[in-house]
Amino acid sequence: MQPLTFVNDHNIATIRGLASLATPMALRVAVTLGLPDRLRGDGAAVEQVATELTVSPVALELLLGHLATLGIVERASTGYRTTEYGATLCTDADNGLTNLLHLNMAGGRAELAFVELLHSITTGHAGYPRRYGHDFWADLADHPHLRESFDQQMTHRFREQVPRIVDGYDWARFSTIVDVGGGIGTLLAAILTAHPGVRGHLVELEPTATEANRTFGAHQLDDRARATAGSFFDPLPEGAQAYLLCDILHDWDDEHAHRILGRCVEAAQPTGRILVIEAVGGRWASTEFDLAMLVIFGGRERRIDELRALASAHGLVLDTVTDLTDQRCLLEFRLATTS
C-alpha cells in the first residue's frame, strides 16, 4: 500500500499547486505596483520601496519573499532586485504581459472575473457584470484607460500572427473588404499593404476608429483605407465583396452573435462573403481560453458545426475552412443563393 500512498500524496501536492491563488495574484500585484521596473539594476531596500508606493513594508517583504522563490526577484545587498527572468514582466519588455496582469488594465481586470466562474457555469452567463456591475464593453466605454489598454492588448495578441494570416489566404480575390470591429487596423493595414489592388473600410467604436485611421496613415494607405466610428450591431457599409470578423463572434453569446452576422449579411447582399477568423473549438482553441471567453464575455470558442449552424440561420453556407496559424482558422461563408 505504500506506493499508493506516495502517489496519492504526490497527486494532492500537484493539485494544491494548481489550485493555489497565491502565485498568480502575487505576480499581478507585483506588476500593478511596478515592482519589476522599480527593482531593476541594483534594486532597492524594502523600506524605501514601501515608502515610495505607500504600502506596508512588512507585507511588501512577504510579497517579495514569494517573488524570490519564483525567480522574479533575488536578494541583494541593497534589498531586492529584478532578475533577468523577472525582467520579462517589465513594461518595456513589450510582450503584452503587463496588460494581461496589471489589475488596473483591461486584461488584468477582466481575469479577476474568474472569481465568478461558479456563477457562469451555473447560469451560462458572463461573470464580469456580476463582479463589476456592468459588462466588459460598458466598462471600456466608461473608462478610457481600459479601452486604450484593451486596444494595446489586441495589438500584442496579433502582432506575431498577422504575417501568417496575410500569407495564408487569398485576400486579393476581393476588391473591397470591410473589417468589422477591426481594432486599430493592424490586420487590415497588413492585408492592404500586401495587396495593392484591395481597398478597405474598418468599422469600430471611438476612439479606436481614430487610432485605426492613424494606422492607415502610417502605412501610406489613406487613399485605399478608412475607418468610421460605428457599432457592428448597427447597419454596416454596404456592397463590399468581403466582410471580415476577426476574433469577434467568440466575445458574444448566441443572441448577440446572430445580430452581428445579421448585419453582415444585410450589408453583403447579394454576393459578398463573410470571413470569420477565430480560434475554433476542438481544433485550435485552448480549454483555458474557452473558460475565459465564458466568464468575461459570456461567449465561447465555437466548434465548426456550431459556427455553421449559427451562420445557416442567416442563409449562409460554409464554403471553406483554412488553418491560418496554430491558433486561428478562417471560415469563409457565402450566401446560399451565391454559387
Rank of each mutant, 00 (worst) to 15 (best):
R109W: 00
D135A: 06
T98Y: 06
Y132W: 07
Q153N: 09
G96P: 12
H156Q: 08
A113L: 00
I177V: 13
E160H: 09
W171T: 06
D94A: 15
D135P: 02
H143D: 15
Y128K: 04
G107R: 12
L103F: 06
H119K: 13
R159H: 12
S175K: 01
P129W: 07
H134D: 09
Y169S: 03
E111T: 12
L188W: 09
L97M: 12
G185D: 09
V180Q: 04
I121C: 08
T176I: 01
N95W: 06
H156I: 01
H143P: 03
G124V: 09
L112Y: 05
L140P: 01
L100G: 03
L103V: 01
H145F: 02
R131V: 15
V178N: 02
F114T: 15
T98C: 12
M105C: 13
E111N: 09
T98K: 08
Y132V: 04
V178Q: 05
W137M: 08
L187D: 08
I184H: 07
P129C: 04
G107S: 11
T176W: 08
S175L: 00
V180K: 09
W137K: 03
A93G: 07
V180H: 06
T155H: 12
G183E: 03
S175T: 03
A93S: 15
S120R: 05
Q161V: 04
M154P: 02
A141K: 08
T123C: 12
R130F: 00
D94S: 06
V178G: 03
E111F: 15
I121G: 07
A189D: 07
V180A: 09
D135Y: 11
D94H: 10
D151F: 03
A141S: 13
R147K: 02
R109T: 03
L101N: 04
H102Q: 02
D170H: 14
A106D: 06
T186F: 07
H134M: 14
F158D: 13
L97W: 12
G108P: 08
T155Q: 15
D135E: 07
A172P: 01
M105Y: 14
A106I: 05
R147Q: 09
L117Y: 11
D135R: 09
G96S: 11
G181H: 11
Q161P: 04
R130W: 00
A93E: 14
A110V: 01
A172Q: 15
A106H: 05
E116P: 14
E116H: 13
E148P: 01
T123D: 10
G182K: 04
L146K: 00
A93K: 09
L103R: 02
L100R: 15
Y128P: 03
W137Y: 12
G124T: 14
H125R: 15
R164C: 02
A106V: 08
G183I: 03
A189H: 05
F136N: 05
A138H: 11
L140F: 11
A189G: 11
R130N: 06
G185Y: 11
S175P: 00
Y132M: 01
R147Y: 04
G133Q: 02
P129R: 00
H156D: 14
R131I: 04
E111R: 14
I121Q: 15
H156P: 05
L187G: 11
F114G: 09
E160P: 01
M154S: 12
R131W: 01
A113K: 06
E116A: 14
A106F: 10
L97D: 02
L146D: 04
T176A: 05
N104H: 13
